[in-house]
Amino acid sequence: MKKFLLPVCLLLATMVYSQEDLLKSLDSTQVEQTYSTATFKALQLVTLQTTKMPAKKEFYFVVSHRFGSVERGFKEFFGLDNATTKLGGIYGVTDWLSVSLSRHTLNKMYETGVKYRMARQDANFPVDIVGYSVADINSFLEKDQYPRIEFNDRLAYVQQLLISRKFSERFSIELIPSFVHKNLYNPSIENDNQFSFGGGGRYKLTKRLSVNLEYMHNFDKPGFYENPLSVGLDVETGGHVFQLIFTNSQSMSESGYLTNAAGKWGKGDFFFGFNLYRVF
């Protein structure tokens, strides 16, 4: 009997110890946070940035076009005769930080940008928050026309706060307060500092198709410029997202898009274009 009781006691003691150890382990384990994903499928809503970030070591090659105004009809082939182009790249330094560089044919603009995640939507926090900082270099300005021009005069800066929320698998919105500063400006028609606020949303129509809308109100714009209003269609095709765009602002740089929208939707004066992102 003693030979039987001894192993049983040892087994019971081992089980009790193992249970206590397991409970301690469970108490000390933190539940992994689940963040909201796919709030937006593209890095841009239409022209404005979204809170989507490249993954670490992920590279995006960007090709964008904005054609001329469709208002002129067949005379300029509905704007196709006056195309402007943007070529650029975006690299994910980390999962929360990316850098970008692009060249725009409009005003021969070079643009550098830094995008950085500040907060993510989860069960304990309602929104994604991302900062976006941009510096533009206008290389179109010639010494012949501006004999005293210096490099610093070619610069413009943009600072944006991107705040988004995914409400469902189909619907997401974003709010964007923006600040633009231009070193070279015409004080008779614009301010060196301009503030705007707006945003947009995305509605998923099918598994690979969504419609996007964005609008920004510029509080400091001169009377002959318009507030930018744009509509886009996202088409997911394998390794890239293709965006078809209709907008009243031809510029693809943030500083130009926000402050120099010239088209008037009510008069059929708007621009067609597209964004193409390829991921490597």
Rank of each mutant, 00 (worst) to 15 (best):
E71L: 07
L87F: 02
V130H: 12
K57R: 04
D136G: 12
S64V: 00
V93K: 13
V134E: 14
G79N: 02
N124T: 01
N124F: 04
F77E: 06
G68D: 03
H104Q: 14
D136N: 10
V63F: 01
N124V: 02
T94H: 13
Y132F: 13
H65K: 03
K75D: 01
V134A: 13
Y60S: 09
Q121C: 08
L97M: 06
F77W: 02
Y132S: 15
F125C: 00
L101K: 14
V130R: 11
D95E: 12
F61N: 09
K86T: 04
N107Q: 14
Y132K: 15
N124P: 00
H65W: 00
S100A: 15
R103H: 12
I129S: 11
R103E: 05
V99D: 04
G92T: 05
D95Q: 14
N107A: 13
R117Q: 09
R66I: 03
L101F: 14
R72T: 12
G68P: 01
K108R: 11
G73S: 14
V114E: 01
Q121L: 13
D122V: 03
M118R: 09
N82C: 05
V99F: 15
N82W: 04
F125A: 07
Y60Q: 06
T84F: 03
K86L: 10
K75E: 01
F61L: 08
G92S: 04
I129N: 15
K57T: 04
Q121T: 07
R117Y: 10
Y110F: 13
T112R: 09
N138E: 13
V99R: 10
K57D: 07
D95G: 11
H104L: 14
T84C: 02
V70S: 00
A123V: 10
R120G: 04
K108M: 09
H104D: 10
N124S: 05
N82A: 05
D122H: 12
V63S: 06
G79C: 06
R72G: 07
F125L: 06
E111D: 06
Y110Q: 06
S133L: 12
Y110A: 06
Y116H: 10
F125T: 07
K86I: 09
L106G: 14
I129M: 14
S64N: 05
G73Q: 08
V134N: 15
F125P: 10
L80N: 04
T84W: 01
V127M: 07
F125V: 11
E58N: 04
V114W: 02
E71F: 04
R120S: 02
S100D: 12
L101P: 10
E111P: 06
L141G: 03
F74I: 06
S69Q: 08
G113L: 00
S69F: 08
V63M: 03
E58W: 07
S100F: 09
V70H: 02
T85F: 08
R66K: 09
